[in-house]
């Protein structure tokens, strides 16, 4: 049986990731000073990491050997996803979220959340300017009033304008 990169499916990649990450954890745990009577600080994490390496190996072998018919089928491609593929959409939302979290301490909660909501609304297929604007202003405003005035919990303020 020929096994190459082309034959590795999602499960195989997850298995390889698990094995690699847990090998790294095991290395970290080996360097940790271990204390404790009978069962030490690192006993359980080492056992769990080792188990994940074994389970990852089983998943890898299983994903390569099982018949193609029993493998998870790819997502249906019957609907119109719009201009961009699902992977691009998810990547854009993740990038937007990273930018939002990074912008929070600089632009403050209200501005950053408003801009983020605007971007996300477009990504979720909303093309109506007024409802988008209402969401961009309304939700951050309600949440700010709720947390800062009622719950007395401070949300990030705009460091850039201070």
């Amino acid at each position: 049986m020929k096994i190459g990169f082309r034959e590795l499916n999602g499960d195989s990649w997850v298995a390889l990731g698990l094995i690699a990450a847990n090998a790294m954890f095991l290395r970290d745990l080996a360097l940790t000073e271990s204390e404790g009577a009978y069962v030490s600080t690192t006993t359980l994490p080492i056992a769990l990491s080792a188990s994940l390496i074994v389970l990852g190996s089983v998943l890898l072998v299983w994903s390569l050997l099982r018949p193609a018919a029993s493998r998870p089928s790819p997502p249906d491609k019957v609907e119109d996803f719009g201009k961009y593929s699902p992977v691009v959409r998810v990547s854009v939302v993740v990038a937007l979220t990273i930018a939002y979290i990074a912008a929070l301490p600089w632009f403050g909660y209200f501005l950053a959340s408003g801009a983020y909501l605007g971007g996300l609304s477009l990504m979720y297929g909303n093309r109506k300017p007024l409802p988008i604007l209402a969401l961009m202003v309304g939700l951050p405003l309600v949440l700010m009033l709720f947390f800062e005035k009622y719950m007395i919990v401070l949300l990030p303020s705009a460091r850039l304008f201070e």
Binding site: L104, P105, Y116, G125, P140, F147
Partner: peptide, 24 residues
């Protein structure tokens, strides 16, 4: 509609974790 629901959930998720842990 999902167009309003999920953008709101994303913002609520970020806000909820921030107010609970106060950690970016």
């Amino acid at each position: 509609s999902n167009k309003y629901l999920f953008p709101s959930i994303m913002v609520l998720g970020v806000t909820g974790v921030y107010v609970t842990t106060n950690s970016f």
